[in-house]
Design a protein around this nucleic acid. Sequence first.
DNA 1: CGTGAAAAAAACGCAGG
DNA 2: CCTGCGTTTTTTTCACG
Lengths: 155, 155
Amino acid sequence: MQNEFDEIDRQLLAALQDNARLTSGELAEMTGLSQSPCWRRIRRLEEAGLIDGYHARLSRRALGYGVVAFVSISIDLQNEARSIEFAEAVRAIPQVVMFHGVTGTADFLLMVVAKDLDAYSDLLQHSLHRLPGVRQVQTSFSVQEFKGFNELPIP
Amino acid sequence: MQNEFDEIDRQLLAALQDNARLTSGELAEMTGLSQSPCWRRIRRLEEAGLIDGYHARLSRRALGYGVVAFVSISIDLQNEARSIEFAEAVRAIPQVVMFHGVTGTADFLLMVVAKDLDAYSDLLQHSLHRLPGVRQVQTSFSVQEFKGFNELPIP
DNA sequence: CGTGAAAAAAACGCAGG
DNA sequence: CCTGCGTTTTTTTCACG
């Protein structure tokens, strides 16, 4: 199960990651192939699981989320069942847009969106601080977004 | 310039965020509208900037990135020009997939992907530690991804 | 790989409620 | 603002060499 794709596949992946509305024809022109094999390659990339799906990217600001916070959480990890309970509780919070278990001083790192600081404060008090087993919560607000998480580099 | 969208717009946004390949017809059926106004609404949402674009989501694992790291960086921020220089240098690193200036103990938070720990180690030594003005670099590896950053909640 | 062609959908316009 | 209808143009999808 090695990575087995060539330069053209790379071009296709990069182009589609940037704009999924490109047609097979446009992609064919970009890559120098003709339309049919180009379409077949895309099919292959989809079936191989390299392309996970096509999604509209929504604008955080246009949706009214003015606040992005990174939240480090430490818990009392007594047993695995409690950990799973914690993870499920966090995952169920819609404002938590990213959620990883991490090494280091904290146990989990969350990325959270909120309309404003008041909304974030509510979320903190009513959801995050009430999570089962939580010991410490530390918030870091984003003050400047230099790079969103929009794309992966093509190897 | 308030958020001015109704329940149907919310449905459309949620559906397209989940799957951008849905046709106007399918979306019309889902929302109970007919095809024409449905299509018009989508156009409006695009023009209003709520929909930022359509993008293929690539699979990190299928691309061969086994490592995700969160990197906190503190710098000696002597003047603004130096800060901008730093930011540009970081932004130019393809493996840095997310990059925010943050409040708290560190100045910046990065999310980085790498093939494996060796690749991450190289990146750290050859890129991150060599950044202009960097004072401290702290890495937290992701050991479990409970939620990627795949979608925003619809308000 | 390529050319070509049928079937589907997008991208609208328009009349009328 | 919606519906329903129709039209033109693109795009998808696939048979075949």
